[in-house]
Amino acid sequence: MTSVSMTVNGKPASGEVEPRTLLVDFLREHLRLTGTHVGCDTSQCGACVVHVDGTAVKSCTTLALQCEGADVLTIEGLAQGDQLHPMQEAFREHHALQCGFCTPGMIMSAIDIINRHGGVPDETTIRHELEGNLCRCTGYHNIVKAVIAGGEAMAPGRAAAE
């Protein structure tokens, strides 16, 4: 066992883990942050996406030890009290979910897309960039709408600088 320490959702978090422990297991089992889901176990479906130092990663193929000292943000850390993050609000309002299992990873990827593009990219780009997040219930239409609406609410009036 090895000790690991990181900041998760703004709070210090540490634990004793095996070197092989995955970030997703550290989050779910040690910290009981179960909003991050495991869908395929092999970094393809995107249900496990979290942010590490501001970048989206698939936590099912990231070792907890790789995140030593890092700043980790999960779905549970997005809302400020009762105030949802604009992207959460957009997914809620636009019916961009059905079973909800992919939703946390989808929202974390969506925020990453907006951050990386410095605003809302065009719809084709959004669809392309969401290819690493699978949804089996919806046809993605409302998800794409929510990403646009959430992105605009995050940075009003800013189209992506491309």
């Binding site: 179960t34 959460q88 979910l97 909800g100 939703t103």
Partner: peptide
Amino acid sequence: HDSAERHVTGSALYVDD
């Protein structure tokens, strides 16, 4: 959806959660 708020905050519990 009645669970929409829980889905977007990660607080909707599935069996493994």
